[in-house]
Design a binder for these strands. Sequence first.
DNA 1: CTTGACATTGAAGTAACTTTAAGGTTTATA
DNA 2: TATAAACCTTAAAGTTACTTCAATGTCAAG
Lengths: 141, 141
Amino acid sequence: MRICDLAEQTGVSPPTIRYYEKIGILPPAQRADNGYRAYRADDMDRVHFVVRARSLDFSLDEIREILAFRERGETPCAYVLGQIDGKLAEIDRRMAALAQMKAELRQLQAAAEEIPLAAVEAKNCVCHLIESHYSTQRSEK
Amino acid sequence: MRICDLAEQTGVSPPTIRYYEKIGILPPAQRADNGYRAYRADDMDRVHFVVRARSLDFSLDEIREILAFRERGETPCAYVLGQIDGKLAEIDRRMAALAQMKAELRQLQAAAEEIPLAAVEAKNCVCHLIESHYSTQRSEK
DNA sequence: CTTGACATTGAAGTAACTTTAAGGTTTATA
DNA sequence: TATAAACCTTAAAGTTACTTCAATGTCAAG
């Protein structure tokens, strides 16, 4: 199995696989006679683990730590569960921020529709709204 | 008004203000006799504009483009409204991704509680779950 | 008069990649 | 058999939006 095949199987690009190897997320790959990287099923498992953890928003540093636990033969259970708690809290924060952002963008859209063409020509448009929204919010508090 | 004051008023750190100037988001600042940057109200307005746009998730490149429109005396209305449409769509995508992530992390938490201590000692813990979840999801399809 | 808190600059560090450059190998086709 | 497409290799630089650092300069207060 060559790097391109592994890439296809895992959805990770070849340069990214090499990058993961370089920074120690993946062990140095076996090499074929021609010097090409040669992979097997367990390599794919490890990449899948990384993909999975990345999709759960673990950073590469966190993933490296988890893998290190495993290599030392320790279970990173408590560690991982702690990280998961943190992630969940952060997801809530992010979703709230996105919800607010969405509301504000919608407000901008609505406000843009209110603006008469004359004002648009006079450059009193959305930019102005973006500009003034800050003070508006401030004074609303 | 010195850089530190401007920073305090806008919530942007002094190095970041210098950075914005360096990459052309802000114009070269006026200088006091001692060489310190000196700011006035309209500088603050511009920084507020940038802060506002950043908080709405516009990239610095996009902000630079919007500001360029304004400097050329054109209204970037259509442009900005188009960007806003894109942002809204992206926010929906991100929120969906976060919701899925949250559901999966909760699933991991729940699964962790099912694992008997014996299995934990035998290293069959959350890591294993992260690892196997991918194939589980795949085969569920 | 010295200490602390500001200011200046350029350069390097950060995350997680992507892109580029400059080559070497293999495979399919003409 | 020649050659072109599609792989592979490496190191290095680019990306985004900053932050941090180093080395130095200025200024107000005790």
